[in-house]
Design a protein around this nucleic acid. Structure first.
Lengths: 337, 337
DNA sequence: TTATAGAATGTAATCGCTTACATTTTGGGT
DNA sequence: ACCCAAAATGTAAGCGATTACATTCTATAA
């Protein structure tokens, strides 16, 4: 059953059927009804490939993510997909892994599918130190509109939506400082675009308070934050090595869970002896006792905004190149108020 | 740059170019090289729509999930997508929500995209009580091969991969019983295909031990397991209402976290006074202290198997209609050994 | 050398839709 | 009744691949 069959059944031309399908306004109502009836009766669905071939688009957008099983990314993907679907787009998902090859392969797959737009979900795609490594993104942007979540790149065809992680982390650190904490361990395990900014925010807090920032308190954990016991052991070994801290600020909530475990296992009281603050305000924060204070970086709002900008771009409307959200401290039980 | 351009540049016909692209074996090596060179030089990529139109397939498979931000589903999606991509398929993701309309809409969207196969990721799509409600799945299966993860439906075109949740839950309950627990609370919050089987498994354990199963110990929590405090309060109120239990077995790990919180907040010692066992063996089990014993239901293996069956089906090979995995108890700190 | 099978290549129809352009209808205004 | 612009509809040429079938090589055997 194709458009030609329908046109014959309805006694009109394929052009008219096409017009009806696409809601053109120059069709006589009676004709429209006639065609619609035939379509309805025969359960006809336009062939997406044929349409795609003609229009060179299939109303799809590609989402690139490093690892969609990461809770934060999963939530972003979920949110973005939902918004897109509501607006008639379907989502092609690719998980690339961290290595360059995977990223480039996924990207060309998406490009080969002629997606209308590519969304990079997460800052792990952007190399902040060497812009040359972002060439594959710029190349894609020369072909198709690109959206980036949680990072920013300058290109006429790239639109970015992000949270000001630097300021949010700075505020978190300031909060701890202003609550009397002096030895604040910053625990991170990546050097992505946003990670770099978070670290900068941490430093900035000390600067603002005219305190010196002791580099020993910036600790890089080699491993996944999913390795909770690894994180716990790492913190324990830091303490054993003589580093004293009365607060731990982390790159994400899972690292904070490792920190909580460290305290629990070593009978360090939270938050009296040790304050802990995570980042992302994910469900992990409420999985342990005490529940973890965290920074909400407005993931949902960002995703909605991102899709809305994406739709604007696809409709040729003007849209901001960079949308910045601000994070918000969420206090639970691991910080004193 | 299309196949015609390439054919002209290489001085051959489009048919030959097409043969080269698709790796046909009846092309003279020298011709092949010539064409490949031109393709390489001009960075030509075949148009997926045109190909799709001709072949009526675009090497895509659709994944239906109720909520991809659920950690368990997210992991399944991640795993399935990766396997598919490695085999040259791309993944169209749709999250349907729990209501029927969303499911049907997503499904027709996928069908309209002419995906080669549809994967239902999760048992939430199957109505176990009234098979009529599964009609939309059967209808899809009449058109395209269907794979179901974690549930089973009988249809010539439907293949299922699942864990025997009934036996796994039975074994978990048996373990608790055989360790001297008598009052085992079963906490669940859904009535999906797998939920129904888990409950049945719980009952079965008592039957096997010739004990009667007190219905009051089967407790349905009205709400999401993400509402950890809600779960905690629910358990607390059960206790306050006079129900005594020395073990809690749950439908998923998040519910178990709620149970752990209940114990922690009421100074009930785990596992001496109360054993707790979750389900899924997700990262949540190690987010709290004490870490939660759980049932590993082989998600990764299932996903790999599912994709492998999917590929078999798509290649016209014979494949099992139903693949059953068995779960495995994973003991941590919330159960006595 | 020639016939011929088999390999290599080419021709052109086809997939189902959109749309520029051509044509026909329609409904006022004289 | 007639004209004509505007509305409605139709015609047919793409879009870019695949592939059945036709044709042209090529190498081997007679």
């Amino acid at each position: 059953m194709n458009i030609y069959d329908i046109s014959k059944l309805a006694g009109v031309s394929t052009a008219t059927v096409s017009r009806v399908i696409n809601g053109a306004d120059n069709v006589k109502p009676s004709t429209r009804d006639k065609v619609l009836n035939v379509i309805e009766k025969n359960g006809y669905t336009p062939n997406a490939f044929a349409r795609g071939l003609g229009l060179n688009t299939m109303n799809s957008v590609g989402i690139m993510c490093v690892d969609s099983s990461d809770l934060y990314i999963a939530k972003a993907v979920y949110c973005i997909e939902g918004e897109l679907r509501e607006n008639g787009y379907h989502t092609i998902l690719t998980c690339t892994g961290f290595d360059r090859k995977g990223k480039e392969e996924s990207l060309s797959m998406l490009l080969a599918q002629h997606v209308d737009c590519i969304i990079f979900a997460g800052s792990a795609f952007i190399d902040d130190n060497n812009d040359k490594n972002n060439k594959y993104i710029y190349d894609a942007a020369d072909i198709v509109p690109v959206m980036i979540l949680n990072a920013c790149l300058d290109h006429p065809n790239i639109h970015c939506v992000l949270c000001d992680d630097s300021i949010a982390t700075r505020d978190a650190a300031l909060f701890l400082i202003d609550n009397g904490r002096r030895d604040i361990l910053y625990l991170y395990n990546s050097r992505t675009y946003s990670a770099v900014r978070k670290v900068a925010g941490y430093r900035k807090a000390f600067e603002l308070r005219r305190m010196s920032c002791d580099e020993r308190y910036l600790q890089f954990f080699e491993g996944s934050s999913r390795d909770i016991n690894g994180v716990c052991n790492f913190v324990t070994s830091l303490r054993r090595s003589g580093l004293n801290f009365d607060a731990i600020l982390t790159l994400d909530d899972l690292l904070a869970i490792g920190a909580v475990k460290y305290a629990l296992r070593n009978s360090i009281s939270i938050p009296d002896e040790l304050s802990i603050m995570g980042y992302n305000n994910s469900i992990f924060t409420v999985c342990c006792e005490p529940e973890i204070s965290s920074v909400d970086n407005r993931l949902e709002s960002m995703c909605k905004n991102l899709v809305s900008i994406c739709l604007d771009v696809l409709s040729g409307r003007e849209a901001p190149k960079k949308s910045m959200f601000s994070g918000m401290l969420v206090h639970r039980k691991t910080t004193l108020l």
